[in-house]
Amino acid sequence: MNSHRKNAKGFDIINAVLMVILSAMFLYPVIYIISLSFSDSSAIIEGRVLLFPVEFTTAAYERLFQDSSIINSFFFTVRITVFGVLSSLIATVIAAYPLSRSHLRGSGVIMRLIVFTMYFNGGIIPTYMVIRNLGLFNSMWSLILPNLVDTFLLIIMINYFRGLPVELEEAARADGCSNFKTFYRIFLPLAKPAVATLTVFYSVAYWNTFFNALLYIQDQTRLTLQVKLYQVLSMFSDALDPAAGVDASIIPENLKGATVVLAVLPIICVYPFMQRYFVKGVTVGAVKG
């Protein structure tokens, strides 16, 4: 018994050490980028920035917020994320509930067709032609409608509804509730963990919109933040407004760092508040079925 406890304790110690090492490996690039964005250009050029900011300065952020194109991209991406997440949640949840009911006729065929889309799709050119013919170019809906429902997340939501006791539906029917009222009053409140999971996934997907923005957004005032970040990283002098002026304390490296921080900070701030729902929703939605 003592040897078993010693082995378990040794395993816990080794596991803790490995987790600390892995956490450090994941956190260091983030900390380094943040430090880079707050460090003076001379310290960056001399290679003195390793972990913490050296000669702390906010010049890169001041320059960043002087450029109207960055601000426009930020708020345009916020709009896409807010409207996209709301639209996707409504469509996914409303589609998942009836498909989770065993008495729905043709549900098996519909599920097979839905799963089929995970392996095959229309392709880039047909989708491009559809967006063009619908007149959605330079619209945020061109970035939302093609990805309105994610098949994987729909399956998670279906499995979550299937995992809830069927007696709830039978009791609601006995009380005279309609299908919609049963869904809205009983099943939807119980699905908060799964909905929170979908919210995190959809938020990350819409916030990181890049490729579709390159295809469908031609108006330079409506670029997503990720496209603008790409411009800053690849074409520093052309991506920013030259009228903003040049500061000797700013070089491409710390301005790139500030742009990266601006791009990832909102998601990093949102995730901790939804983590407990996220873990529960993925576990239950993936296992039960």
Score class of each variant (00 low, 15 high):
I267E: 03
I251D: 01
F83V: 09
Q218G: 13
G281A: 00
D40C: 05
I158V: 14
R276K: 15
T92H: 03
I251N: 11
L134C: 11
L22G: 08
M235L: 08
R105Y: 15
E46Q: 14
A91K: 07
R63N: 07
I251W: 04
H4D: 09
Y202D: 10
R48I: 04
V264C: 03
R185M: 10
I124V: 15
F137Y: 13
A24F: 14
F56Q: 12
S107P: 03
F161P: 12
Q218P: 05
I31L: 15
I14T: 12
V284Q: 00
V109N: 06
Q226D: 13
T127L: 14
R222I: 02
I70Q: 00
G122S: 14
P272N: 04
Y202M: 07
A8H: 00
A171H: 04
F180A: 08
A191Y: 03
M1Y: 10
I156H: 01
F210Q: 07
S42V: 08
F211C: 03
F137M: 08
I70A: 07
V264R: 00
Y271F: 15
V54D: 07
S68G: 09
E167G: 02
P193D: 04
A95D: 02
Y206M: 09
L36G: 15
G123W: 05
F83W: 13
P252S: 05
R112F: 11
R79M: 12
L229W: 00
L50S: 08
I14L: 15
S107G: 09
A239C: 07
V279E: 09
S23C: 14
S69L: 01
I44Q: 09
F120N: 00
M1D: 12
S42K: 15
Q66A: 11
N212A: 11
D12Q: 01
I251S: 13
P193Q: 02
L18K: 09
H103F: 11
I125Q: 07
V30N: 10
R48N: 13
Y230G: 11
I124C: 03
P165Y: 08
N133R: 14
V109C: 07
L233W: 02
R63T: 03
N212M: 10
A172E: 06
R162N: 06
N179M: 09
A91F: 10
W141T: 06
N159M: 05
T221G: 12
V232Q: 01
A171C: 04
A91L: 06
L225W: 13
S3C: 05
V227K: 08
V49M: 07
Y202Q: 12
L27E: 02
L143P: 11
F65S: 00
S234K: 14
A243P: 06
V115F: 13
S68Q: 14
I186K: 06
V195S: 01
Q275T: 07
I80K: 10
A60G: 10
P29N: 03
S73W: 03
V130G: 04
F180S: 02
G10H: 07
S237I: 08
P98N: 04
I44K: 03
I70P: 00
I45H: 11
V85L: 03
L27S: 12
I33S: 00
I21L: 15
N15I: 01
S107K: 15
Y230H: 13
R48Y: 10
